[in-house]
């Protein structure tokens, strides 16, 4: 979709005066059946996931895998070297199941370490970050999204998107400064 001046259209966007207004608008856009849309705010808004019809984040599953990988790595390194490669007799203690608790602290530490890395990289990858540029930055008002602005953006890629319907919906939900955002 293009504007009369030949710009590729990215989305129709609007600004809202408060988190509450944005929250109510999000529910209207969700109920209108749009799929490719998003809201932007300087802080996470409580209840917005439901208002947008999004479920619980599945990032926790990635972190669980990270944790399992961490404890396995620790067991592999510890048991592999202490039991197999280089058995070291300390305090005259044997190598059997009774000494396993002495290996727990490092298992715990590596579980936490790998889980934390999983959480950190998962949040970046699942959000498609780092992404230096994004069409929404073409809108000059959008700089306030990290300050005190509350925005709702309906992408042109959405199958239900028509300029008239999107504009009408944003107007009806109380949006201000409604505008078309260019792709480039």
């Amino acid at each position: 979709m293009r504007t009369p001046y030949g710009h590729e259209v990215y989305a129709m966007a609007a600004e809202y005066p408060s988190p509450h207004a944005l929250y109510e608008a999000a529910k209207m856009v969700r109920d209108a059946g749009f799929k490719r849309w998003d809201v932007h705010s300087p802080f996470p808004i409580h209840g917005m996931d439901d208002a947008m019809g999004l479920g619980k984040s599945w990032l926790s599953a990635v972190v669980l895998i990270g944790g399992i990988l961490g404890i396995s790595t620790a067991m592999f390194i510890e048991f592999g070297s202490s039991w197999g490669l280089y058995p070291l007799i300390v305090h005259g203690k044997p190598y059997d199941w009774k000494v396993v608790p002495a290996f727990f602290p490092i298992m715990f530490e590596l579980t936490v370490l790998f889980s934390a890395f999983a959480a950190f990289f998962a949040v970046l990858i699942m959000n498609g970050l780092p992404r230096p540029h994004h069409p929404i930055f073409n809108w000059d008002r959008f700089a306030r999204a990290s300050n005190d602005g509350f925005f709702l953006v309906i992408e042109a890629r959405d199958p239900r998107f028509t300029e008239v319907e999107a504009r009408e919906l944003l107007e009806r939900s109380g949006g201000q400064h409604i505008t078309i955002v260019h792709e480039d």
Binding site: D38, H40, S41, M48, S57, F120, V123, N127
Partner: peptide, 24 residues
């Protein structure tokens, strides 16, 4: 990293933050 305060991002971000707190 190109953060734009999108709620689709905040959703995962808050979960990651909660889990990092839980791990710490």
């Amino acid at each position: 990293v190109g953060w734009r305060g999108s709620n689709r991002n905040w959703r995962h971000y808050e979960m990651a933050y909660l889990l990092l707190a839980g791990l710490s």
